[in-house]
Design a protein around this nucleic acid. Structure first.
Length: 832
RNA sequence: GCCCCGGUAGCCCAACGGCAGAGGCGAUGCUCUCAAACAGCAUUCAGUGUGAGUUCGAAUCUCACCCGGGGCACCA
C-alpha cells in the first residue's frame, strides 16, 4: 500500500487506490484482448501496418529498471500507433539460450532449462502487470526446439550459399568461459565482454559466417539509415566495418611466391625501404631463410608470451627480426629487406606491409629501432622525418618518385600509381575492411547444436532437413562443466550417428551456435511463431516488414544490430523477403543510473523495480521514466520524482470525477479558450510522438491538466462541454503512458472500456488559429514593445502599427530609421 | 591519434534563425490541520561552456578551442 497516495478516508473523491485499480483492469484487458495483431487486416489493406519491436530480454532473474524504461517508451509508441488507427504488431519473447543458465545449472546440479524457464515465467508475470500492450499470442523462446529447429535450418541455408564455412585460424579464447569468442565480443581492452577475463588466442577449426561478403552493402545502407537511426550507432557501425581504400602491391621474392601487401598510400611506393610481415602469420615461417629460422622462432615465442593487453599499448618500443630475404620493389626494382614484427597484424589486409618510414609513424619508429634507411618521397615543407623522427602524412611535392615527380596531390598520385601497377600486372586498386567474418562456434551446451555430421568418408554432411531439429542431449549439473571442448562431446550416444550419405559411422558436430545467431532472426519468427512448416511466412514478411521502430540498448550498437542486418540481407538474397534493411528506424534508450553511477550490487546503489512498483504503482513508474528525459539520454534515479508523477496522475484522475456533463455531449458550444488549449495539445502531441519526443508529450499533457483544472475551478465550470472534451483528451493521452489511470478516467467519464480501443482525437483546424497574436517590436534586435494584432495582418500594416507605437516612438527619438524588417504577424525589427 | 554526439536556472529538461522558459524536481512562504502527512496556492533562480564569424536578429548556422559521453585504434 502506498504511503504517498493512500486514499484519504475523509475525502474518498480525492484519491484512487493505485493497486486496486491495477487489480481491477488486468482481467478486463485479458478479456478484451485489444492488442492482438491481425494478419488479415494488414493483408487486406484495411489498416496500415506498424511493426514495433523492442529487444527481447535474456531471462536472468526478474525485470529491472532498465527493462521498465524501455518497455515504457516502447509502449507509448505502439499505443500511439494503435490510437492512430494502425494495425500494430507488438510481439515479445525471450532470448533464452546462453551462459548464465548453464553456469546456474552447474552450480545447482540441474538442467539449464530449469533456471531459464522459471525466470521466463517470472518476467512474463512482471511484464503483464507492467501493462505493456504486447501481443502475447506470438510469444517465443529461442531455446525451444520449435524455434532452434529453424535456426539450424537457416544455418544450412547459409551453408548452401557458401556463407557458412569452417576454417582453422587463431581465435579469441576466453579462459574463464572456456569458449571461443567473436571479435565483437572482445572489448577494446582485450577482455571478454561477458565475464571480463583476459582473452587469449588459440588455433582452432571453427565455423564462420561470411559477413565480409556483405561489408560494402552493410556500409552503404548506413547512409539511408542515418536520418532515422541514432547517430552514434551509425557511427559505431561505420567504424566497426572500417572501410579503407588503397591498393594491393606485389613484391617479387626470390624462390617464393610474390609478397603482396595492402597499402592506403601506394603513391609512397618509392619510399618503401623495407617490408614487414606479421610475426605470427604463416607467411613469416614460409619466407624465412634457413640462417634466420632460429631467430624468428625465438622472436615468435617472445611475441606469444606478450598478452593482447601488452600489444594494445601503441607506444611500446618496436621489436622484430630480419627474415634473411629481400623483395623487389615493382616500380624501382630496388631490393629491400623483409622483416617480421608484431606491429603488423596477421588478420588484416594480407598480413604484410611495405614500410615507408618517412610517411608512416609506425614504420619510422621501426626503422629507427632497427637502423633501417628512411627516404622522403613527399616534401610537405615540414622537417625531414629522417631528422625529426616525425613521419609526414600530408600533401606535398613528390621527390625521388620517378613518374610522380612534379605532382603534388595525394589523390592524383595514388591514382597514377595504381594505373601504373595495373598496367604491369603488379598490383591493383582495392578496398579493405576492418570487419572480419563472424565466428559462430561455441564450446558450450546451452545453445543451438550445429546441424552437421562429420563423416570420415563424406566429410561435412548437413543433417537432412526432415531430421531437424537436432535436439540437445539431456545433460545437467557437472556434465556441463567447462573443459575446453564442448560438453556435447561427452554425450557419446548423441554424438555417434550414422552418416546420412553413406550410412557409415560418423559423429555430430559438438559445438553450439553463438546466441547472437538466435537473435539475428527472431523478428522474422514473430510473424509465424507457431508455424511448424517454415521459419516464417514470406507473405507475412511482405505484409508486416520491415520493422518501423526498433528500440534497444546501445550496448548492441555493433553486435546484434550488425548481425541482424547481415541476416536480413542474406534472407533477401535467399528470396525469402523483399526488403534490404530490417529496422526502418532505431532508437537506443539510455541507461537508468543512480547518483551518477551505474547501478550495481558492489556499489550498493541498486534501485529495485518491484519495490518501486509497490510503492508508487505501475503508472507512476512508467510516467517517471518516460518524462525524465529524451528517451536516448540516461536517467539518473536521483534526479527523478516518482512521487511527483503519482501526484500528477491523481490530479489528472480527479478531472474525470469533476466533469458533470454527460458522455457524448457536443463540445462545439464549449469554452473556446479551453478548447483551443485542448486542440493545440492534441496537434502538438502528434508531432512530438512522430519524432519520439515522449518527455515533451508528457509536459504538454501536464499543461492541459493544469488548464482544465483552472477552467473547472475558476473558469467555465465543471458542466462546460469543453471541460469534458479536455478530460477525455487527457485520458487518451495518458493511456499511452499510464494505462491504468487512463482506463479509470475513461470509465468515470462514462465510456465503455477500453480506452486502448479509443481513437486519436480529431483536431479542429479552426481552433488552432488565434484571433490575436502578440507581435514583438525590436530595435536593433532588442525587444522594445509588443502589439496585439490579427494573425493575418499585412506586413505594411504591421510596420505602420509598430512605428506608431508610443514606446517605439520614444525609443526612436533622435535616431534615424535605416531599415525595417517585418515578419508578419510575429515580429518587427527596426534598424537605426 | 581519427570519427560521432552533447554542454540552457540548484537539478532533470523545453524553446520553426525572431519575446530565453513549456513542464517537472528542489527550495522558500502561505492556505488547510490541534499538529503533521496529503493536498492546494504563490514565489524563487540562468542569458544558453569559451572566443570569433555570418545575419536586421544566433541557444539555434559556420569555424576554433575547453569540458563531458561514445565508437575505432600499431587496421598499414
Amino acid at each position: 500500500m502506498s504511503e504517498t497516495v493512500a486514499p484519504s478516508p475523509s475525502s474518498p473523491e480525492v484519491h484512487y487506490d493505485v493497486h486496486a485499480v491495477e487489480e481491477k483492469w488486468l482481467p478486463v484487458w485479458e478479456e478484451l484482448d485489444p492488442f492482438r495483431a491481425r494478419d488479415e487486416v494488414v493483408r487486406s489493406g484495411e489498416r496500415e501496418k506498424r511493426y514495433a519491436l523492442t529487444m527481447f530480454p535474456y531471462p536472468s532473474g526478474d525485470l529491472h529498471m532498465g527493462h521498465a524504461e524501455v518497455f515504457a517508451i516502447h509502449d507509448v509508441i505502439s499505443r500511439y500507433w494503435r490510437l492512430r488507427g494502425h494495425e500494430v504488431l507488438n510481439p515479445m519473447g525471450w532470448d533464452s539460450f546462453g551462459l548464465p543458465a548453464e553456469n546456474a545449472a552447474i552450480r545447482n546440479d540441474e538442467h539449464p532449462a530449469t533456471y531459464t524457464y522459471a525466470n521466463i515465467e517470472t518476467q512474463y508475470a512482471s511484464m503483464k502487470r507492467y501493462g505493456v500492450s504486447f501481443d502475447w499470442s506470438r510469444r517465443l523462446h529461442t531455446s525451444d526446439p520449435e524455434y532452434y529447429r529453424w535456426t539450424q535450418w537457416l544455418f544450412l541455408k547459409f551453408r548452401e550459399q557458401g556463407l557458412a564455412y569452417r576454417k582453422n585460424s587463431p581465435v579469441n579464447w576466453c579462459p574463464n568461459d572456456q569458449t571461443v569468442l567473436a571479435n565483437e565480443q572482445v572489448l577494446a581492452d582485450g577482455t571478454c565482454e561477458r565475464c571480463g577475463a583476459e582473452v587469449t588466442k588459440r588455433e582452432l577449426t571453427q565455423w564462420y559466417f561470411k559477413t565480409t561478403q556483405y561489408a560494402q552493402e552493410l556500409l552503404d545502407c548506413l547512409d539511408d539509415l542515418q536520418p532515422t537511426w541514432i547517430d552514434k550507432v551509425v557511427n559505431a557501425q561505420r567504424n566497426w566495418i572500417g572501410r579503407s581504400e588503397g591498393a594491393h602491391v606485389s613484391f617479387a621474392v626470390e624462390g617464393h611466391e610474390p609478397l603482396t601487401v595492402f597499402t592506403t598510400r601506394p603513391d609512397t611506393l618509392w619510399g618503401a625501404t623495407f617490408m614487414v610481415v606479421a610475426a605470427d602469420a604463416k607467411l613469416a615461417t614460409e619466407l624465412v631463410s634457413e640462417e634466420q629460422r632460429a631467430a624468428l622462432e625465438e622472436y615468435q615465442t617472445d611475441v606469444r608470451k606478450a598478452s593482447d593487453i601488452d600489444r594494445l599499448a601503441t607506444d611500446r618500443p618496436k621489436t622484430g627480426v630480419f627474415l634473411g630475404v629481400h623483395a623487389t620493389n615493382p616500380v624501382s626494382g630496388e631490393q629491400v629487406p623483409v622483416w617480421a614484427s608484431d606491429y603488423v597484424l596477421a588478420d588484416y589486409g594480407t598480413g604484410a606491409i611495405m614500410a615507408v618510414p618517412a610517411h608512416d609513424q609506425r614504420d619510422l619508429d621501426f626503422a629507427r629501432a632497427m637502423d633501417l634507411p628512411v627516404r622522403r618521397v613527399v616534401d610537405t615543407g615540414e622537417e625531414n622525418p629522417e631528422e625529426s623522427g616525425v613521419a609526414t602524412t600530408g600533401n606535398g611535392a613528390y621527390v625521388n618518385s620517378g613518374p610522380l615527380d612534379g605532382l603534388s596531390d595525394k589523390v592524383e598520385g595514388i591514382r597514377h600509381v595504381i594505373a601504373l601497377l595495373e598496367a604491369d600486372n603488379q598490383g591493383s586498386g582495392t578496398v579493405n575492411f576492418r570487419l572480419r567474418d563472424w565466428l559462430l562456434s561455441r564450446q558450450r551446451y546451452w545453445g543451438a547444436p550445429i546441424p552437421i555430421i562429420h563423416c570420415p568418408v563424406d566429410g561435412e554432411v548437413p543433417v537432412p532437413e526432415d531430421q531437424l531439429p537436432v535436439e540437445l542431449p539431456e545433460l545437467r549439473g557437472a556434465d556441463l562443466k567447462p573443459k575446453g571442448s564442448s560438453p556435447l562431446g561427452a554425450a557419446r550416444e548423441w554424438v555417434e550417428v550414422s552418416c546420412p550419405t553413406c550410412g557409415g559411422p560418423a559423429e555430430r558436430d559438438t559445438d553450439t551456435m553463438d546466441t547472437f545467431v538466435d537473435s539475428s532472426w527472431y523478428f522474422f519468427r514473430y510473424l509465424s511463431s507457431h508455424d511448424a512448416t517454415q521459419a516464417f511466412d514470406p507473405e507475412l514478411a511482405k505484409a508486416w516488414g520491415p520493422i518501423d521502430l526498433y528500440i534497444g540498448g546501445d550496448e548492441h550498437a555493433v553486435l546484434h544490430l550488425l548481425y541482424a542486418r547481415f541476416f536480413t540481407k542474406v534472407l533477401r538474397d535467399l528470396g525469402l523477403i523483399d526488403w534490404d534493411e530490417p529496422f526502418s528506424s532505431y532508437l537506443s534508450q539510455g541507461k537508468v543510473i543512480n547518483n551518477g553511477r551505474k547501478m550495481s550490487k558492489s556499489l550498493g546503489n541498486g534501485v529495485n523495480l518491484g519495490e518501486k512498483l509497490e510503492e508508487f504503482g505501475v503508472d507512476a513508474i512508467r510516467l517517471t521514466l518516460v518524462f525524465a528525459s529524451p528517451p536516448e539520454d540516461n536517467i539518473d534515479w536521483a534526479d527523478v520524482s516518482p512521487a511527483g508523477a503519482a501526484r500528477f496522475l491523481q490530479r489528472a484522475w480527479r478531472l474525470s470525477g469533476d466533469v458533470t456533463s454527460a458522455a457524448g455531449t457536443d463540445p462545439s458550444g464549449g469554452d473556446v479558450a479551453l478548447r483551443k488549449v485542448t486542440h493545440k495539445t492534441v496537434n502538438e502531441a502528434a508531432q512530438l510522438l512522430d519524432s519520439y519526443r515522449f518527455n515533451v508529450v508528457v509536459a504538454r499533457t501536464m499543461e492541459l491538466v493544469n488548464a482544465t483544472r483552472k477552467a473547472i475551478d475558476s473558469g467555465a465550470g465543471p458542466a462546460d462541454p469543453a471541460v469534458r472534451e479536455a478530460a477525455e483528451v487527457v485520458a487518451i493521452l495518458l493511456s499511452m503512458v499510464a494505462p491504468y489511470t487512463a482506463e479509470e478516467m475513461w470509465e468515470r467519464l462514462g465510456h465503455q472500456p477500453s480506452v486502448a480501443q479509443a481513437s486519436w482525437p480529431t483536431v479542429e483546424p479552426a481552433l488552432l488559429v488565434d484571433e490575436a497574436v502578440t507581435a514583438v517590436v525590436q530595435i536593433q534586435g532588442k525587444v522594445r514593445g509588443r502589439l496585439e494584432v490579427s494573425p493575418d495582418i499585412s506586413e505594411a500594416d504591421l510596420e505602420a502599427a509598430a512605428l506608431a507605437d508610443p514606446a517605439v516612438i520614444k525609443a526612436l527619438e533622435g535616431r534615424e530609421v535605416r531599415k525595417v524588417v517585418v515578419r508578419a504577424p510575429k515580429l518587427v525589427n527596426i534598424v537605426v
